[in-house]
Amino acid sequence: MKRIICIGNRYLPEDAAGYEVYRFLSKRGLPNGVDLIDGGLAGLDLLQYLEGMERVVIIDSISGFGANGDIRMFSAVEVAKAADPCFDHAAGLPYLLSVLPEVCDGTVPEIWVLGIEGIPDMEAVRSAAAQALDAVRGETAKEVYGK
């Protein structure tokens, strides 16, 4: 089973890119064996939605990586490196990905994080959705690792 999880706060435009992609994808149907979740602000509580998956693509807003609407793919390891060593109420994805190997029941899934800079326009949302579908099908892994 493969999964796309869109995260962020739909009420804050700077943090709503994930939700916008969720809305786009939820209207268009998904390939067999792939499901879609609006992860909202769940943070550490996303753990149970990663467990049991073969591959997961997480879509979130990013800040400071490029121009508005730019899209960038991160590996789980890259995101985990940004984790603050201490948990707080705002601890989100980096913290979860850091502890995942220790806390995950079963095999740790292959995880990619697709970041969208700032407040994306429809073209950027469409492009992010297409890249997310490629990634969840394993195309990103082939590109990066040649497998």
Binding site: I7, G8, N9, L12, E14, D15, L41, G43, D60, S61, I62, S63, G64, F65, F74, V79, A82, D84, C86, H89, A90, G92, L93, P94, V113, G115
Partner: peptide
């Protein structure tokens, strides 16, 4: 203390804060 849930974007600058 819990002041809010705010923008949780993955930010390049996050590590620059003093704590």
């Amino acid at each position: 203390a819990c002041l809010v849930c705010t923008v949780h974007a993955f930010s390049k600058d996050r590590k620059s804060r003093i704590r």
